[in-house]
Design a protein around this nucleic acid. Structure first.
Length: 402
RNA sequence: GCCAAGGUGGCGGAGCGGCUACGCAAUCGCCUGCAGAGCGAUUCCAUUCCGGUUCGAAUCCGGACCUUGGCUCCA
């Protein structure tokens, strides 16, 4: 029985889907730059989640958003004198290529914020109608956090009421609480040609509304799992819940799963520390994408993963080890019978994966199986069976072996 | 300050009350003309500290100290 750690309750809960098709929504990348390996840790985890749930026999509809309009994207486009759409299209393509490189399956739906403006407007209007949103002096629309009693439940933060210097674009000028946030941002000159003329006025969507609009459109007002990095918990997911509550009266997702961050040499990855790697940086240094993926999955997603080059080399050796064992199994023609070993491993494997998708333990078991079987003189029948199970288990990780 | 995660051998990392993983590194040896730089062996008296529970604790309870992360850029 699969158990998932739900950030909402801070507990592992037995996974019980709402309906026949498991709806999974993932906060995808902002497409104005190359994604780094930290991003891909989350996406690799999410990929395993989907594969595993399918492996267990469920149908899954998987939606991932591509954020293609927001402050930094606009600023980046402006800086390079490009159209926002050209910039985001380029980086979307890059993202898809990177996913392919890592052997991550594509979502059933990749939704773009700019293609859901009508849905965004609709949700904002609902929030306004029900008194959860108000129009600020600047013409933007803000969410009134004080109206939502469930505010803070996901992040488990207690938010103090109080005044604080308000940055336009982020906080409602009339806010009595620190956390009111923009649903719709009225047009400013710096937005250039990025705007929509709507019944809410000329402007663009706020930071959080797209996920409410797109998840609702593609998965309904209530679906199974919402995935993202831990940094999304607050304020992003907290705001998404608030918006959906304002519009539809409920929390959109039953389970909220958050992947912890990737550390580099023991420290948080950041641009200022210079320990920032994109996937392409690592490929450029000659590393095998499957070694990178192995490393990203080598630890439970609920634990911080320390990325080191030593670890990466180690992962590379492990990949080769599995690779050569697969070759051996294909050519086995000995006398040892060992079918039972593989069946035993399959059971163990399912147990560790059921425990909140511990891909690290799962990989370790795969390694153990390989080690055990490697120097046996297997007969054809056993080796075929073992290979079948090995490949079946690996299909959850999607590691490619030549 | 608040909310979390965690402190295990040179390093990474299991263990979830008794049988002290495993991997890497290191040392020594062997093999390297049909797959694979492989195989075997050895070394390192490891569990942050202080109490408690227990016949017995890395493992449970209490406390201390420390590290890391989050607290409106971020996956």
């Amino acid at each position: 029985m699969l158990k998932l750690y739900n950030s909402l309750t801070r507990k592992k809960e037995t996974f019980r889907p709402l309906g026949d098709v498991v709806g999974i929504y993932t906060c995808g990348p902002s497409v104005y730059q190359y994604s780094h390996i930290g991003n891909f840790r989350t996406f690799a985890f999410e990929d395993v989640l989907v594969r595993y749930i399918r492996w267990k026999g469920y149908s899954v509809k998987r939606v991932m958003n591509l954020t293609d309009v927001e402050d930094k994207a606009i600023a980046t486009a402006k800086k390079y004198g490009k159209m926002l759409g050209d910039l985001t299209e380029f980086y979307s393509k890059v993202f898809f290529e990177d996913m392919d490189t890592l052997g991550l399956m594509h979502a059933d739906v990749f939704s773009k914020a700019t293609e859901h403006i009508p849905e965004i407007i609709e949700i904002i209007k609902r929030n306004m109608d029900k008194g959860y949103a108000y129009c600020g002096k600047d013409g933007s629309v803000y969410y009134d956090v004080s109206k939502f009693k469930g505010w803070g439940k996901l992040s488990h933060l207690t938010l103090k009421a109080g005044k604080r210097k308000i940055k336009r674009d982020e906080w409602g000028e009339d806010s009595g609480i620190l956390s009111d946030f923009a649903l719709w941002k009225s047009y400013e000159k710096k937005d250039g040609n990025v705007f929509w003329e709507t019944e809410l006025g000329k402007g663009r969507p706020g930071w959080h509304i797209e996920c409410s609009a797109m998840s609702t459109k593609h998965l309904g007002t209530r679906f199974d799992i919402h995935v993202g990095g831990v940094d999304n918990i607050y304020p992003h997911h907290e705001s998404v819940i608030a918006q959906n509550f304002g519009a539809f009266g409920n929390n959109p997702s039953k389970y909220w799963l958050h992947c912890r961050h990737l550390m580099v040499e023991g420290k948080k990855m950041s641009k200022s520390a210079g320990n920032f790697f994109t996937l392409r940086d690592l490929l450029g240094k000659g590393y095998d994408p499957m070694a990178i993926k192995y490393l990203l999955l080598s630890q439970s997603y609920r634990k911080r993963l320390n990325f080191t080059f030593e670890g990466l080399e180690d992962a590379g050796r492990k990949i080769k080890n599995i690779q050569s064992t697969i070759e051996k199994l294909k050519n086995a023609n000995g006398s040892d019978d060992a079918e039972k070993i593989a069946l035993k491993f399959k059971k163990k494997f399912e147990r560790v994966m059921d425990d909140n998708l511990n891909s690290g333990e799962g990989l370790r078991l795969l390694e153990e199986l390989v080690e055990k079987v490697r120097y046996m003189n297997l007969n054809k029948r056993s080796s075929e069976k073992i290979l079948e199970i090995l490949l079946s288990l690996n299909s959850i990780f999607g590691l490619r072996f030549q």
